[in-house]
């Protein structure tokens, strides 16, 4: 490399070391996610072009790339949210533990129940209390639930996202009274309450302050092993900090996917190198 890469685009060695602790040794109930030749479009515009990607069970896979490169669309194809848009089309396959979520007999609603999803901006349901927000997904899946079981779940999940101490005494309040960071963690709790084995995060910290961002990243780190995580981010340091594998997308195509450290230190493709060294994007 003739040029000194931008310091900010480099993960610190300490973080890398932490991520690389024997990832292959993980034994987990989390599923393998295989995306196979996936193409997604909105009307005439193709957002994702022939992408194949495998996410190992219980690991964190980050997708990076400039805005508009199709990374969010790819994510939204996994839980079949993409097709809820008028004019949207998908072709290809997404295998979750060997089963194609796009198979003809699969109910998208059923699939989405098993996959957690958190979007870029906090989306707590207004007109619902904090407590009801946490268990909204559970309620959708099983109509009648024991009140005590629900309460236990609310506490467990809110503790998991580090929100319990902050909201324990106002569970019946409107989520509008929470700060943006708290709202986003509430949304994480809502996604985690049904105990999904696959979690999709679409730039979950894009609208958060540094402290809230750190909390969310710590949570993602603790999920490793139990949950397969696919996280979209435009923050390279974040990808480096939290992920085991990183995939780089450009103009709807997957340029390369590799171990995170390998991708950031010795990218195989010149375009990847250009992006992570900050030459564009």
């Amino acid at each position: 490399m003739s040029r000194e890469p931008a310091v900010t685009a480099r993960p610190t060695p300490a973080v890398l070391a932490r991520v690389d602790v024997a990832p292959d040794a993980i034994h987990t109930a989390a599923p393998t996610l295989r995306i196979h030749q996936l193409t997604a479009s909105y009307g005439e515009r193709v957002a994702v072009r022939d992408v194949s990607l495998e996410c190992a069970p219980g690991r964190v896979t980050a997708i990076i790339g400039p805005s508009g490169c199709g990374k969010s669309s790819l994510l939204r194809c996994v839980n079949r949210l993409h097709e809820s848009v008028v004019d949207a089309r998908v072709s290809g396959a997404v295998h979750l533990d060997g089963r194609d979520v796009y198979a003809h007999d699969v109910d998208p609603v059923e699939i989405r129940r098993r996959i957690g999803f958190v979007s870029q901006r906090p989306t707590p349901f207004p007109m619902m209390s904090i407590r009801d927000n946490v268990v909204a997904g559970l309620r959708a899946a099983t109509p009648r639930l024991d009140a005590r079981a629900l309460d236990a779940c609310v506490e467990r999940t809110l503790r998991r996202v580090g929100l319990w101490d902050e909201v324990a005494r106002r569970l019946d309040d409107d989520p509008a009274s929470l700060s943006g960071g708290q709202q986003q963690r509430l949304c994480l709790a809502r996604a985690l309450a049904p105990e999904p084995r696959l979690l999709l995060l679409d730039e979950p910290t894009a609208s958060l302050d540094p402290l809230s961002t750190q909390r969310v990243e710590e949570l993602v780190y603790t999920l490793r092993g139990d949950v397969t995580v696919l996280i979209v981010t435009h923050n390279l340091q974040q990808a480096a900090r939290v992920s085991d594998t990183t995939a780089f997308m450009l103009d709807g195509e997957l340029i390369e996917a590799a171990r995170t450290r390998a991708l950031f230190t010795t990218p195989a493709d010149a375009r990847t190198e250009a992006y992570i060294t900050g030459r564009f994007g």
Partner: peptide, 28 residues
């Protein structure tokens, strides 16, 4: 990775037909 058969779905242009394809698994 063994290449799974590629199901071609939602390739039809109209959303109406696409949604009628889903009707089989739509809830009441």
């Amino acid at each position: 990775m063994a290449a799974p058969p590629i199901p071609s779905f939602a390739t039809d242009q109209s959303r109406a037909r696409e949604s009628s394809r889903q009707r089989g698994v739509q809830s009441i």
